[in-house]
Amino acid sequence: MSRKSIRQAINEALALEMRRDARVVVMGEDISGGMGAPGEQDAWGGPLGVTKGLMPEFGRERVLDTPISESAFIGAAAGAAATGLRPVAELMFVDFMGVCFDQIFNQAAKFRYMFGGKAVTPLVVRTMYGAGLSAASQHSQCLYPIFTHIPGLKVVLPSSAYEAKGLLIQAIRDDDPVIFFEHKAMYDEEEEVPDEAYTIPFGEANLTREGDDVTIVAFGRMVQFANQAADKLEKDGISCTVVDPRTTSPLDEDTIIEMAEETGRVVIVDEASPRCNMATDVSALITQNAFGALKAPIKMVTPPHTPVPFAADLERAYIPSPEKIEAAVREVAAA
């Protein structure tokens, strides 16, 4: 047990599972880095160094650098999963889903159903998402609602280092295809993480705060922002429950409904674009199941319906902030 960053937690989860199970392989662009080049090998370990050190330990047969060829290697990961490996493929940025989505949503997601239950596809696609690093419109999107929409996929949004390790090990051991979202602005965030392997089950929301006045449902990085807002509001006498669903598919509907009923006041925080995102989905869930318990209209905190801008000031204005969450909670609490 020691303090580890999300980057270390993910690396450790991969290494532990690769040691435990020879069928686990990782693949992706620059996943070790420097393949075929004259200089340093294992030069990158992925664009942000998450997989560094795996290739020296497990060799090139299990740490597979790929050409820039997402259609081919994400599809190969799906095919390998259906035939006996347990691949963890890295889709460098989720924004690149456009060039490999068929392999995920038409192939991996549907094998089991189309084939009458006879396929097992233990595929994990790790992918970076989210705004905050001035990466502009094609490298900053969230897009998890799109994957959540697809039956057959599981979608995971870890909110901290402890969560990331346990959820990734669960993802690797899970026999269904899992899309594992890593927020690019969170890799350096640290907390206590056990050295051993452990799993956090999917579909079980975590309550990071418990309060009496307002329920905040937040996803991925927004859980941290919601916690910050809740801590500030607590000092002013507004106590919040913060629900981290952990996975958007499966979604822990029971806990969300129960927590909404407990306070009767709900704020949903989602970094994804506002149309058909998790905030609209959860809002519909609560109004259908807990309408009678609501004391105020549900409030959603999301970015505007625009692409993610480049300029730092614009990007700051785009991202839901702790301040925006705080303001929304105050509004809902006063309504």
Binding site: A72, A76, A77, A78, G79, A80, A81, A82, T83, Q103
Partner: peptide, 11 residues
């Protein structure tokens, strides 16, 4: 073709 690359990788 991509899927079959995966099957070959397994093999």
């Amino acid at each position: 073709p991509p899927l079959i690359c995966g099957a070959a990788l397994t093999a």
